[in-house]
Every structure is written in C-alpha cells, then in structure tokens.
C-alpha cells in the first residue's frame, strides 16, 4: 500500500469502519445460536432474539411470511448502512446485483411454470422489484438479453434459465469487483465463481453429464480454470472431491466426504467464503472491514432465518444444527 493510500483510505472509510467495529460486536454469538436451537418453541426463539438487532423486526411475527418480511427489513437496514458507508459505487453494486438476478430468475422460472411472480420478488436490488413483475420487454436491456438467451437455450428448461442467469450474475459481479479496485472484493468475486463452478461440476458428475455439457456450464473468472476443473471431471465423485480438497484451490482442507455430499455443498461453500471474509477483520482500515461485515451479516440473516423457519416448519434440531455455518468472529 502506497503512502497515498495509507493516508486516503482510512480517511475515506474511517467512519464506516468505526461503526462496523461496534456493529461486529453485536453479531450473534455461538451461545445465541445454541439457545435458538434449544428453544422449545418459536415464541421462545423470538424472545431469545428480542435483545438483538433483529428484535424490532420480529415483533409480533408468527408465520413464515412474517419471518421472511422481518429479515428482508433487516437486510434493507443493512444495505442502507452500506449506502451510507461512502463505499465506491461498484462495491454497493456488487452487493445489490445478486438480488436483481434473483428476481430475474424468479420471474423467468415463474413464466416457465405459468405462475405469478407475486410474492417471489425481493426489493433489495439496484432495480426496483416491480420492474421484474412487468413485461419482459420493459426489463433493463441486460436482463432482457439474458431472458432472450435463456429462451433460446430452451425455455422449457429450468436448468438453462439458472445457468444463463448465474453466468450473467457472476460476470457482472466480477466486473463490479474489478471496477472497485479492491483486491479483496476481486478475490471474493473469483471465489464465488470457483464455488459455483465446483457445485456445477459435482452436480454434473453425479448426473453423469457429457464432458462437453459440463464444460459449457462452467463460468470463467475464478481462480480455478475451467480446463483444470475439467481434467478432474473424469474422476468418480469421491475422488473428484478428494482432488478438490487436496488441490491448490479454495476448497483445500475441507472434508472430502462432506464435499462429495451435494446436500452439504452450500454449507461448505458458505464456510469457505466466511473463512475468506475473516481476512477483512485483520484489516485496520479500507473497504475490507465494511465488505466483510456486510457479507457476514447477510450470512447471519440466512442462518437465523433457517432456524426460525425450520422451527415453524417442524424441522428437527439435529437437521437444523447441520445447516449452521461457520461464524464471522
């Protein structure tokens, strides 16, 4: 870091970093997660969360819809903080963009099955959610192009919709990360591509897809090249998982047996991402602590949402416990 950066970055991001240092201390502790898991009822879970930042949003919640709404509000507050943190535009776009693509995916899948998209959209993206409920022709150009490509690839295929949307999302995330000039964010975007590719590869291997089909599904821009991944594709799933867990990529060191279990992949991927984000806590200044905190709060919201909705849906505690991710601490 040059002297100019030493001087300007702490001044530019100092206020947000100061707030983040306090807010990190208000993130849920391991003991709170244990109490949520051990709670005998949903009402008890709400009581446990009453003194946390989620307490006000969850007041009076009693249904899955209430919980979803409460956590969307909590995320909305998180993104308002992000907007006020004086971060560069591409960094904010990096966080907002996934919601736009999630809305696009929801819209295209709803169209596929002839369903209404009402209730499936989340208003946390850069584009207002209601835009995705309107005609495809009125979508922003880049989303319209994706919708057309997905249609060309076979509109009756949910997988092709997901692939087209995810490919575009990662391309845009990589572009935002590059524009932000934050190496940390660039690394995060590349890691997300790697994790998406490994998931695709494992899923394709389990389904015994042809090499060419699997290759076509991989996304460029990660630290693991598509060619390197395809060299592993000939291996059976357990050996493929072992190779990934012992190779040079971001999955080095994970349990290969868990990696081979596709049902566990999301948990493992989130843990790998949290381990990357923890580097941000070691940075005294700059955008990294803010980025790390926002990603960690997103993960926290997802975990608490899982525990509450799991309780409402009667999911056993042991199953919920296995869904818990590594915490940002």
């Amino acid at each position: 870091m040059g002297l100019r950066q030493v001087v300007t970055e702490p001044i530019r991001y100092g206020f947000a970093v100061g707030r983040v240092r306090v807010l990190e201390g208000r993130m849920l502790s391991g003991a709170t997660y244990e109490r949520l898991l051990d709670a005998p009822s949903f009402a008890e879970q709400i009581r446990v969360l009453s003194d946390t930042p989620y307490g006000t949003f969850l007041e009076g919640a009693s249904t899955v819809e209430d919980v979803e709404r409460a956590f969307d509000q909590a995320l909305g507050e998180l993104y308002r903080f992000l907007e006020s943190a004086n971060l560069p535009g591409p960094v904010i776009a990096f966080f907002r963009t996934p919601y736009d693509y999630a809305n696009l995916k929801a819209r295209l899948k709803a169209d596929l099955y002839g369903q209404s998209v009402d209730g499936l959209l989340v208003d946390l993206g850069a584009v207002p959610a209601e835009v995705f409920a309107g005609p495809i022709g009125s979508l922003p150009k880049r989303f319209r192009a994706i919708a057309e490509r997905a249609g060309d690839a076979g509109a009756a295929d949910e997988e092709s919709v997901s692939l087209e949307v995810d490919r575009a999302l990662h391309a845009e995330s990589l572009a935002h990360a590059a524009a932000s000039r934050s190496r940390f964010l660039e690394g995060l975007a590349a890691l997300q591509v790697d994790l998406a590719n490994v998931r695709t590869l494992l899923r394709a291997r389990v389904r015994e897809r042809k090499n060419a089909d699997a290759r076509a599904m991989l996304i460029e821009g990660g630290t693991l090249s598509a060619d390197a991944l395809m060299r592993l594709y000939r291996l059976p799933v357990p050996e493929l998982a072992s190779a990934l867990a012992s190779g040079p990529g971001p999955l080095r060191g994970v349990d290969p047996d868990e990696l081979a279990d596709l049902a566990r992949f999301d948990v493992i991927a989130d843990d790998v991402q949290v381990r990357y984000l923890k580097r941000a806590r070691r940075a005294a200044a700059g955008p990294e602590p803010v980025i790390g905190y926002v990603m960690a709060r997103k993960a926290e919201v997802m975990m608490v949402r899982t525990l509450l909705i799991g309780m409402l849906s009667g999911v056993p505690e042991a199953v919920l416990r296995r869904r818990l991710r590594e915490r940002y601490e």
Partner: peptide, 11 residues
C-alpha cells in the same frame, strides 16, 4: 484518520 473512525464508533 483516527477521528473518522472514532466518530463512527461513537455514533
């Protein structure tokens, strides 16, 4: 430099 961070903490 430090005052910006301190202001964030006090906020």
């Amino acid at each position: 430099t430090i005052s910006n961070t301190a202001a964030g903490i006090v906020t």
